[in-house]
Amino acid sequence: MSPLAPAPLDTALPNLDAWVAWFRKAEMPVLADTADALEAMRANEDDVDANLIGEMVAHDPLMTLKILAHAATHRPERRVTDVETVTAAIVMMGISPFFNTFGPQPTVEDRLAPVDGALEGVNHVLRRVHRASRFAFAFAVHRMDLDAAVIHEAALLHDFAEMLLWCHAPSLALRIRAMQQADPALRSAAAQQSVLNITLADLQHELMKAWALPDLLIRITDDRQARHPSVQSVVLAIRLARHTAEGWDNPAVPDDITEIAQLLNLSPDAALQFVNKVDE
């Protein structure tokens, strides 16, 4: 990922290839809390280990993505398996090389401060993916899925393209939001296609491949493979987080609970109690 930061996009690019090429060159900011914590750890490098850094990064989808993409494209030739978690990526790199590679980070907050409504847009996505990642991890643990850590990470990264859009094309993201607010029945993909000439799901899938992210992570994040239980854990977690973002009275929630109950082999009442406890 290049340190270059193209000026914000105000006009949609013509096709998916153009969007992928543009984002591959774009600087990726991280959350201000992450940037501050990273500098505090840098000052005490001898007291820091991979688990501590991994726990710190776990709340930040963009820093998570940044580390995984770097690890994937700088993997030693002797390593034949994918690095599927941030902690594993840092272990592979080593603590000092990690800090040398990831110097002081640009922040989402600094980038979006001049744009009214943009930081609010990013924070809305963050709240959703944080809740979704908790749901997904709980589903995976209940199912005794050995890939629970990757499932948590997949839910955290599920909407990273939307976050990047807010960071690098806030005026276009605001147009999409305005369209959906004006017509609540308008599907996200239709609004994105209208404004961007692409859907964010397609952009995200192609960026994950371009950055050589782990195959398992790409599969789990791909909603089109929703029959697989690991993917279902993420899809249903994201869906529930979306439908309950403003409260639990959304008419779509009962259907979500029915599918979650089937996934977890619980009754609908037990499934509802389960997700309510997770959400606490």
Rank of each mutant, 00 (worst) to 15 (best):
D49M: 02
L157D: 07
I257P: 07
K66R: 12
A169R: 07
P170W: 15
A245K: 04
P254Q: 15
R242H: 09
L119K: 09
A136L: 02
G103C: 01
V141L: 07
T258W: 01
E109Y: 12
D215V: 08
E39N: 10
F98C: 06
F99C: 13
L13M: 11
D46W: 01
H142Q: 12
P29Q: 14
N276K: 14
P254W: 15
E84G: 05
V83D: 04
Q232I: 00
L266P: 00
L164T: 04
T87R: 12
A113N: 05
V91D: 01
I90F: 06
A58S: 14
V125G: 04
A237F: 10
M28F: 04
K209M: 06
V253L: 13
I198A: 11
F274C: 01
V86M: 03
R177H: 03
I151F: 00
D249K: 14
R227I: 09
D10E: 12
L146D: 15
A190N: 12
A154E: 02
T258L: 03
L38M: 08
S194Y: 07
L126H: 04
L263C: 02
P76S: 11
E206K: 07
L52M: 15
A245Y: 12
A154M: 03
A88G: 05
L112G: 11
S267C: 06
